[in-house]
Design a protein around this nucleic acid. Structure first.
Length: 226
DNA sequence: ACTTGTTTTCCTGATT
DNA sequence: TAATCAGGAAAACAAG
């Protein structure tokens, strides 16, 4: 039995250290298991699924059915006196839930391993990091990110970044480049502006608002979900 | 080692 | 006025 540590940003920007017991799929890249708050993992970790319930408490969704007591016991083994704030009597354990689907079709030619940001060519089985417009396509299709970005017009491919800084951080994770500096909205937006001339994006009005262009395959190779 | 495409970084000026 | 938007220039990175 393993215990894994995850640091995540809660909605009020505070850092929470979360432990869990699990056994599922291994991840090597930063990933997002808090429904409303992407967070980064700098170290290899394991899948954890979090949900934020209506009382704003973190809800652990483990792949093992465990009593609160057993979590506390293990927590003590690892953390000693360092208790975890949300692991108290109000901490609910939910039923076992399936982890996110490992792959999602994003066009008639490409599949994304959604939990790892890798895009897979089914023919060659090769994996690669997403291009920027592909990343946005993935984010916009994933309801977990609806508070970070969403379509303003699904038919036209117009979308808005509601939390540009968070999207930028997510993009850095997805791209996985060895960069000395952090990704910022300013730099992400510059990359998007390069797309105008290339046809991957079309210029549109509105704050933090962009539109997929024909070269992105919008409307032909793929369409927004629903 | 070299090439190519895609950003990333930085910046100036215009616009909101 | 600060934050964005537009692009130029050049460097950086990844992949082949």
């Amino acid at each position: 039995m393993n215990i894994y540590l995850v640091t995540c940003n809660t909605s009020d920007e505070q850092q929470e250290t979360v432990s869990s017991i699990d056994q599922p799929t291994e991840l090597r890249t930063p990933d997002i298991y808090h429904v409303n708050n992407p967070f980064s993992l700098s170290q290899p970790s394991k899948i954890l699924n979090f949900n934020e319930d209506q009382t704003n408490n973190l809800e652990l969704r483990a792949d093992l059915t465990l009593s609160t007591d057993s979590i506390s016991d293990i927590s003590d083994d690892v953390f000693g006196d360092e208790t975890l704030s949300f692991m108290d009597e109000s901490f609910p354990l939910s039923p076992i839930l399936p982890v996110s689907p490992s792959t999602t079709q994003i066009s008639n030619a490409l599949v994304v391993e959604s939990t790892e940001w890798f895009i897979v060519n089914p023919l060659t089985n090769k994996r690669r990091r997403p291009l920027l417009y592909e990343f946005l396509q993935i984010v916009l299709d994933d309801p977990r990110y609806c508070e970070y970005a969403s379509y303003a017009n699904k038919n036209k491919g117009i979308f808005k970044l509601h939390k540009p800084n968070e999207i930028a951080a997510l993009w850095k994770n997805a791209k996985g480049r060895n960069a000395a500096h952090d990704m910022t909205y300013d730099k992400l937006a510059r990359a998007l502006r390069f797309y105008y001339k290339k046809g991957f994006m079309m210029q549109t009005h509105g704050h933090y608002t962009f539109q997929f262009g024909p070269k992105s395959g919008f409307g032909t190779l793929w369409k927004p979900k629903d």
